[in-house]
Design a protein around this nucleic acid. Structure first.
Length: 573
RNA sequence: GCACCCGUAGCUCAGCUGGAUAGAGCGCUGCCCUCCGAAGGCAGAGGCCAGGGGUUCGAAUCCCUUCGGGUGCGCCA
């Protein structure tokens, strides 16, 4: 059930009739015809721009088309009034039983709002992908929540989604991890660790060193690096990934695929990906110009193997092989994305931190080249999270390696609050996260406000059941505040499609806040006007007519919160 | 120097493939409530959508440009 789509279909049908009747020329494209909520509620329930977008191609005045179209629309039983306004808008007022039908429709379909726009297309969403060198921090948390909500949103909109994490376990940074863990291993055996500049100082490696000591004893003590590096590295990576998986689980994030960078080496996959590009004439040996205005101190021209990413919109070509003949980090990235393309995805989405904005163009170029422009590629950047405590900037310990982790956040405020708050800003806007304010119980806290609406509805249902009153029935809407809630419910399927199309799950969070707000307004009105309360004491008929609207709100709140990965509250504590 | 993101009410931010008189919360002003349908409610003031130019019947939205803020910029990932 999608009321906007139904009314749009009605408008299109009316336009077809006008074409058949000679009032409009044939061959018009109706794609731009939209039926939307009006900007001003006073204008009616819905508005269409049909007359304006067709005026030019039809060679007629918008007002003329609007008048003729409006006359046809009011002939339908669902339309009470169709008024031409402004430059050629048609404002529609819908019949009361359309709105009660909507409420009944929501209750009849637990999947109300699901869309088939994705048509089963395969989409791969890659997110988090943090280096396995330490715990996830707040920045990763935002990426994790965003990616997870986006994945759920796309599934809801009918896409076949894979959630994926790329483990950077093939570069130099995991050797640093190994050396850092080795020092903790020595420490566990009673030696002073030498945490030199450039090693990871965090004490999260202490238990790793201890576990290592427990497992292998002192056999690597005072041994040269060549003896232990590979094994310590693998051991440490395993421990780090175990910790990362646990952290993600605490946040409610479950990946479908963990893809190892290391698994690409020695299998010919990197070579195959590069060969694919070479076959397209996109690989060559050359020397890059130094960046203008900011000359690196040790710059000297070097001939490297380059990918001609400028062919696909990048600013400069990018090196894939160092001057010593080894791969740059970009080469396995290309191979990894080649693998994703080869797995048959129609669309790839990467979620990066904003500090990786510089890689967007080259990754898009690589995918465009590898997928011959057939595979869609979108890269979403998540901006910084600034932490506060009771309004004051949260000072992180100066001690190196000690930062606020995902686990710190989830332990303090819980996964539901963490997730919702992370989605109260557009992904590319910086986010303030105040440990105290997110737990505040007031209207200015959207998490609370939405949960409170959910809790009130459950409270109503409990109360009705306890009083022996019905908790369902045939809806009847009379008051303006009730219609307002119904109108907001009608927007849900439309919102899902917009949010899915733009890859912006925050729209769901904002919508839920608006829906909760409309619901609370109706509730508050019930304080003054007892006739508007959902539970009408001693009146079975009235209660059965009021309660469906509350249930319908609950259905949409649950669906929306479900997309965000938040549990709907049944009571506030 | 170049690229990308951002610039909307005093503050923090929404704003739909371009639509009507640009919205919300906070703060401010006024009124109401102190009720477990509780963790306040209602109303009001407040805007050159950073500036300029362009496309369009129509621009906060698209294009160009200036200014201001952030991020990134070969052999690190």
């Amino acid at each position: 059930m999608n009321l906007f789509a139904e009314i749009r279909a009605l408008v299109i049908a009316a336009l077809d009739e006008m074409v058949a009747g000679g009032q409009l020329p044939g061959g018009l494209d109706f794609a731009a015809v939209a039926v939307e909520p009006p900007r001003d509620k006073g204008h009616g329930d819905m508005a269409t721009n049909a007359a304006m977008v067709l005026a030019k191609p039809a060679g007629q005045k918008p007002r003329d088309i609007a008048e003729a179209l409006a006359a046809r629309l009011v002939a339908d039983g669902r339309i009470v009034a169709a008024n031409v306004a402004g430059p050629g808008f048609i404002n529609l007022v819908l019949a009361p039983d359309v709105w009660t039908g909507l409420v009944a429709g929501v209750l009849a379909d637990p999947g109300y709002g699901r869309s088939s726009m994705g048509a089963g297309q395969k989409v791969n969403v890659e997110y988090v992908s943090a280096n396995p060198t330490g715990p996830l921090h707040v920045g990763h948390t935002r990426g994790a929540v965003f990616g997870d909500a986006l994945a759920a949103l796309l599934e809801y909109a009918g896409y076949d989604v894979t959630r994926e994490y790329y483990i950077n376990d093939g570069g130099a940074q995991v050797d640093v991890l190994a050396r850092s863990a080795y020092e903790r291993y020595r420490e566990a055996l009673g030696h002073m660790p030498a945490i030199e500049e450039g090693l990871y100082p965090g004490d999260y490696l202490v238990p790793v060193g201890q576990a290592l000591a427990d497992e292998v004893g002192d056999k690597w003590l005072d041994q040269p690096e060549a003896v232990w590096l590979d094994q310590v590295r693998d051991f440490a990576i395993d421990k780090m990934m175990e910790m990362i998986r646990d952290d993600l689980k605490a946040l409610g994030v479950e990946m479908d695929v963990f893809y190892s960078e290391k698994s690409l080496y020695g299998t010919g996959q990197i070579e195959a990906a590069i060969d694919n590009l070479r076959g397209k004439g996109l690989i060559y040996r050359g020397t890059l110009e130094p960046p203008k205005g900011k000359m690196p101190e040790d710059w000297e021209p070097r001939e490297q193997t380059l990918f001609k990413s400028t062919e696909y919109g990048d600013d400069v070509d990018r090196p894939i092989m160092k001057s010593d003949g080894s791969w740059t980090y970009f080469a396995p990235d290309i191979a990894y994305h080649f693998d994703k393309v080869s797995r048959g995805y129609d669309q790839l989405i990467d979620v990066f931190g904003a500090d990786h904005g510089g890689y967007v163009k080259r990754m898009k170029a690589a995918v465009a080249a590898l997928g011959s422009n057939r595979v869609g590629m979108d890269i979403k950047l998540t901006q910084l999270v600034k932490l506060y405590k009771n309004g004051e900037p949260f000072k992180m310990s100066k001690r190196a390696g000690n930062f606020v982790t995902l686990r710190d956040v989830v332990d303090q405020v819980g996964p539901d609050v963490t997730r919702f708050v992370m989605l109260t800003r557009k992904n590319d806007a910086p986010l303030d996260f105040d440990f105290d304010k997110v737990l505040e119980q007031s209207r200015e806290n959207p998490v609370f406000y939405v949960q409170y609406a959910s809790a009130r509805i459950h409270s109503v249902l409990r109360k009705a059941a306890a009083a022996g009153l019905p908790t369902e029935g045939t809806p009847r809407l009379e008051d303006e505040a009730e219609l307002e809630v119904a109108r907001k419910l009608a927007e849900w399927p439309r919102l899902v499609e917009i949010a899915a199309r733009t890859h912006e799950p925050h729209r769901v969070a904002f919508y839920l806040y608006e829906l909760a707000s409309d619901f609370h307004a109706l509730w508050n009105k019930g304080n003054e006007a007892p006739g508007l309360r959902f539970v009408q004491e001693g009146d079975t008929e009235a209660t059965s007519a009021k309660i469906p609207l509350a249930r319908a709100v609950s259905v949409v709140l649950s669906s929306g919160l479900g997309i965000l990965g938040v549990t709907p509250a049944e009571e506030m504590r």
